[in-house]
Simulated assay, not measured.
Amino acid sequence: MNVRQLREKTPESEKITINLGYVDLGRIDLLVQEGFYSNRTDFIRTAIRNQLASHSDEVSRSIDRHTLELGLRDYAATDLEAVRTAGERLHIKVVGLVRIAPDVSPALARETISSLTVLGALQASAEVKAALADRIR
């Protein structure tokens, strides 16, 4: 029992659920059976990536227009304490993943985060999410 986990492994993806018609599902299964894709998930991921690639210019312009950050944004208690010390408040806008560290208290989050827009996923404690519920868009 000398093994200890240094930090939680953060998932690299978010699970979603979709409903497909039987005909579309059958066509996907046929492509999988014929070896074009390894499984249904492979087909769906490929289709999504192709659509995102075909709209990449529009996404880039929208990110620029909305001044959104793209990718991963981490916030630890030390980051938010520095914001509080400076007398500032954050308006967080991210396309991707926002992680609010476990050391961030709900009170500190409310004191320093005025608004939170995440197009993607937000990882934070249930308490912090509840404290920011009225500020999450």
Rank of each mutant, 00 (worst) to 15 (best):
L52V: 15
D64K: 14
R73E: 00
L68Q: 07
L72N: 10
E58A: 08
V59Q: 09
T67V: 08
G71C: 03
E69Q: 13
R45F: 03
I48C: 11
E69S: 14
N50K: 15
R73W: 00
S62L: 15
S60C: 12
L52E: 11
R45A: 05
L72T: 13
Q51V: 13
L70V: 10
S60A: 15
D57C: 04
A47C: 11
L52G: 10
I63R: 10
S54C: 10
D64A: 15
H55Q: 12
H66W: 03
T46F: 03
H55N: 12
E58F: 07
A47Q: 06
D64Q: 14
S62G: 03
L70T: 05
G71P: 02
T67E: 09
R45T: 12
S56I: 07
N50V: 11
L68Y: 02
S54W: 02
L70N: 08
R49Y: 07
E69Y: 06
R61K: 15
N50G: 10
Q51P: 00
D57E: 13
S56H: 09
E58Y: 07
L72E: 05
E69W: 06
R61M: 11
L70H: 09
I63G: 01
I48P: 00
H55E: 12
Q51Y: 11
E69G: 12
G71T: 07
I44G: 03
H55S: 12
D57F: 08
G71D: 02
D57H: 04
D57T: 04
I44E: 05
E58D: 15
H55W: 02
N50W: 06
A47T: 09
R61G: 04
N50R: 15
A53L: 14
V59D: 03
S54D: 12
T67Q: 15
A53C: 07
I48Y: 04
L68N: 00
Q51N: 13
S54I: 06
N50M: 10
N50Y: 09
L70M: 08
A47H: 08
S54K: 13
L70C: 07
D57S: 06
T46R: 06
L72Q: 06
R61D: 04
I63Q: 01
